[in-house]
């Protein structure tokens, strides 16, 4: 069986290569700290395998992540100033030479990922599934990345595997700490849940519960979903809390709403919150780094005028369709 853990180990190896290349880059003002950052991050991934299988305690991993956060937080993660890639003029020439063949490796990614996602669950060898169940898409994305590099090197006549590694390192350095932030926020979500933040918000939302107005109850449920999602960065965390506080007792039991409609549209109201929050770092902060935008909030600003009217649509849809 192909396991998803293999791809996490592969990612770990990639981070370690990045660390090595960073360490050798004398143009980086903080090269030792930066290399430590990437190396620690690389070691966290294989260690996590043992945490998931409960053979090693999770606290050393927590400590390592705090160290990673401190390196980044105190501005010790730098990156090199020498860009060892092609110049815009060279790229123009290469684009003319390769033409549309350049798209081939990029298209391998969606095609292979799609095939794994669709066919993956159906494949089995000797009665056992070929791909680890429920991880087919993650495995597909990882596998597509490997196949795409091979196709890319062949199509673009790249003699050495070090070329894609160097380029990958360049882009990873550009993203910097934003590549770990989504996982840090997932950690914070877990602490919030364990410490009872959800319950506290749920109780306070429940206290301002409006009796006698269906519209007010719908607004409160949708608003609670959006606001709590903005705080947690994740609608999945908001859903159980808001549903227990308002959705179920008021909208389903008291007003006898259509459960499927109330819950589906409630969740989507939370998604409107996801569009507005830096806490959803993988959607709103990582692309800022990836697209080399100057403002951390550029993506959120582009999404706000969609999120607000769409949230209002959700309120209207729930009010008219679910009751």
């Amino acid at each position: 069986m192909i396991k998803v853990e293999w791809f996490y180990w592969l990612l770990a190896a990639f981070f370690l290569v990045v660390a090595l290349l960073v360490l050798r880059d004398r143009s980086n003002p903080h090269r030792v700290w930066s290399a430590t950052f990437w190396a620690l991050l690389g070691l966290c991934f294989p260690y996590s395998s043992f945490v998931v299988s409960e053979t090693l305690p999770p606290w050393p991993l927590g400590l390592a992540v705090v160290a990673i956060a401190c390196i980044a937080g105190f501005g010790l993660l730098g990156h090199g100033t020498e860009e060892k890639t092609t110049t815009p003029q060279e790229r123009q020439g290469l684009a003319e030479r390769f033409g549309n063949r350049l798209f081939l490796p990029v298209l391998v990614v969606p095609v292979v990922t799609g095939l794994f996602a669709i066919l993956g669950p159906k494949l089995s060898i000797g009665g056992k599934p070929l791909l680890e169940p429920l991880s087919e898409t993650v495995i597909g994305l990882g596998a597509s990345a490997i196949i795409a590099v091979a196709v890319g090197m062949w199509v673009l006549r790249t003699p050495r595997a070090s070329v894609p590694l160097h380029e990958g390192r360049r882009l990873t350095e550009n993203i910097g700490w934003a590549s770990v932030l989504p996982q840090l926020l997932a950690m914070l979500g877990l602490v919030f849940a364990t410490a009872g933040v959800g319950k506290a918000i749920g109780t306070s939302a429940g206290q301002i519960l409006p009796k006698g107005s269906l519209l007010a109850a719908v607004v409160l449920y949708c608003l609670g979903m959006a606001v709590f999602t903005i705080i947690m960065g994740n609608a999945f965390a908001a859903f159980p809390v808001m549903t227990a506080a308002i959705g179920y007792p008021l909208l389903i039991q008291f007003y006898d709403g259509n459960a499927a409609a109330v819950f589906a549209i409630g969740m989507l109201s939370g998604y409107c919150g996801t569009l507005c929050t830096p806490m959803a770092a993988n959607f709103n902060i990582v692309p800022v780094a990836l697209l080399e935008l100057k403002s951390d909030y550029a993506v959120i600003r582009a999404q706000l005028p969609t999120a607000v009217p769409l949230w209002a649509c959700n309120v209207g849809l729930m009010y008219f369709l679910a009751f």
């Binding site: 990612l11 003319e96 490796p105 795409a148 590099v149 894609p164 160097h166 590549s179």
Partner: peptide, 18 residues
Amino acid sequence: IAIFLLVLPVIGLVERNG
């Protein structure tokens, strides 16, 4: 969430080639 980073080497490779 982090697995998308594995795609960066191929993206860098094709970007390098225009």
